[in-house]
Design a protein around this nucleic acid. Structure first.
Lengths: 329, 329
DNA sequence: CAAGTTGGGGAAAACGTTTCCCGGATTCTG
DNA sequence: CAGAATCCGGGAAACGTTTTCCCCAACTTG
């Protein structure tokens, strides 16, 4: 028996093999508990069967959900997921992309957003472009043009929609706790908030305060807000964690939410359900799974659409932290 | 120039190469933007430079923190992390282990706990043993003997300690919301609770109720508890999420925590800090990073201790959801 | 019965490294 | 100055697959 024969039956080639030989090979493979080396296989294949995902921090549930979406479809398709935390550093991103490129990943997914005017972004774009020339697929999952297919949501519209909701609840003076300074997603969400307020003729009532993306930022921002009366009618936070932080600070101070002030977030992570937070639901899992699906399908030759941008829809989720304004401030 | 020469200067061999030649190689490599194939390198190395981590669900922050610990040291050591979600299914675990074995991972880390009397565990143990024979290191991070080095905490002691704390606060009737039925960690934490209650002479006051590991389970358990008065003096939950769920149900029902009832959890995840939950802090990040360190060091030949079990210490964290009992029930 | 056809299987190349072995050139040593 | 030691660089094997090319045997058909 030659190795070629074994390979033919084990890897399901179209080259005909007699039933007898096939059985012999199968028996031998079973006895030896043989499992082909994915490495050697990768050497002769266009890719290694690895799918990479670059997240800012896997501990952040936002990214964990995306990663879960990626891994689920990757695994189902027979791939293995590679994960790297890049802490929002473009340099690190470039480095990890390179590492995954060295493994001839079928594709790499960029889950994180970037900074506006980041001087290193051009280098990343160049790195992505070179990786793609080598046959490594890339997908961006954020408001960031990496010169590759992008699957994202309209963060402006999301912020706009939830602001509209707050406005429809008769809130006139609304504070927006921003995300981390300089991030594209921060800008987009702020833009959406501001645009909605403007359109509602409430530009005067719009008040942006610096924040971040974590609980502490929301807590601190709310504390600062309370230190400088009058309190706004509502607080929109850049994301759910910030909203929960703000909520916590407000309630700690004895302020009734939503009685005296409404609070809303963006993302609809688990924590939002738990505290009954009004928010806008983003299809994070779908973004991850779609990105992975794009990669495995395109790796299978079924060339999916190229550098197109797919915008997934968001959905307003009203819960208990927002209510119609009743006070006559 | 021969490939061998290039390899020598690029991979830092001890074989001498003249400065002139070295410079030429370096220049050529720079011009070509050459980066060695990790795959080809893996073919001739004892391992591929990949480190695998098997988690139940990366969306669960418990595992996300572990994964983060793994990835941080793996990346620093020049490795790349592979991630797989196994949803607590031993079969899936076996399958993913096999996939990672096919990639000749330097090691695989089992982050999840198992079920008692799981009929498939012996198969997993066998699979681990075979993987180790092939030079693939394995580390277990839970109360589960996989025939490999184990880095874990003493869940019994953790539950015991926090129960002691509750008892020291004069709570006599304490309900314990259990983890998912059948899991080893569920059993251990329950054992610790029961033992502490017994030792305190409070066996009568110990009341175990079925639960799970998520917010909903805690919420539901608390609702059931309230439906069947009298309310216990305190509730200890199998983990933080359950505790937060219970907390939420209790407060929703207008019950004052910690005034009327104390609530405590286990794990000390971010959510525990946010709601001010008394809990016991588990060194999750350290478990992940230690496991990864064990793997990379042992892969470098510095043979770390073998199948020894390392037990990391936990720490009681008292916050605002527990207080001394004042009511005269 | 001869020639063509087809089914089945083997040999070898290719993927890109690292490392072992060897030979030529240079330098040191006696 | 001869021999030996040293220094450098090249050739080739090995890692484990898949795939292409080729060949042989058996069967079919005229």
């Amino acid at each position: 028996m030659a190795v070629a024969t074994a390979s033919r039956v084990l890897s399901g080639s179209d080259h005909p093999v007699s039933a007898r030989t096939r059985a012999k090979v199968l028996a031998a493979a079973a006895k030896l508990e043989y499992s082909p080396s994915a490495l050697a296989r990768a050497m002769v294949s266009p890719h290694s069967g690895l799918v990479g995902v670059l997240v800012s921090d896997i501990v952040n549930p936002y990214f964990a959900v995306i990663a879960r979406g990626v891994d689920d479809v990757a695994t189902r398709a027979g791939y293995v997921t590679m994960l790297s935390n890049v802490d929002r550093r473009t340099d690190t991103e470039i480095g990890r992309l390179r590492a995954m490129r060295d493994y001839r990943a079928a594709g790499v997914i960029f889950a994180g957003s970037g900074y506006v005017d980041d001087p290193r972004t051009p280098d990343l774009v160049k790195a992505v472009s070179r990786a793609r020339e080598e046959g490594i697929r890339a997908v961006s999952l954020a408001d960031r043009d990496l010169g590759c297919p992008t699957i994202t949501v309209d963060n402006r519209a999301a912020a706009h929609d939830i602001t509209d909701h707050l406005v429809s609840l008769c809130h006139r003076r609304i504070a927006f706790i921003e995300g981390p300074p300089g991030m594209t997603v921060t800008q987009h969400r702020r833009d959406g908030f501001l645009a909605a307020m403007s359109t509602a003729g409430l530009a005067e009532g719009a008040h942006c305060v610096p924040g971040g993306f974590d609980f502490e930022a929301g807590h601190a921002a709310a504390v600062r807000l309370m230190a400088r009366p009058p309190l706004p009618d509502a607080v929109l936070a850049a994301n759910d964690e910030v909203a929960v932080g703000a909520l916590s600070a407000l309630r700690q101070a004895g302020i009734d939410v939503p009685g005296e002030i409404s609070v809303a977030g963006i993302n609809d992570l688990r924590v939002a359900q738990h505290v009954g937070l009004t928010t806008v639901s983003l299809p994070l899992y779908e973004m991850g799974s779609m990105a992975a699906r794009h990669i495995v399908e395109s790796a299978q030759g079924e060339d999916a659409g190229d550098s197109a941008t797919t915008t997934l829809s968001h959905r307003l989720i009203t819960r208990e932290t927002t209510a119609r304004r009743t006070s006559t401030a």
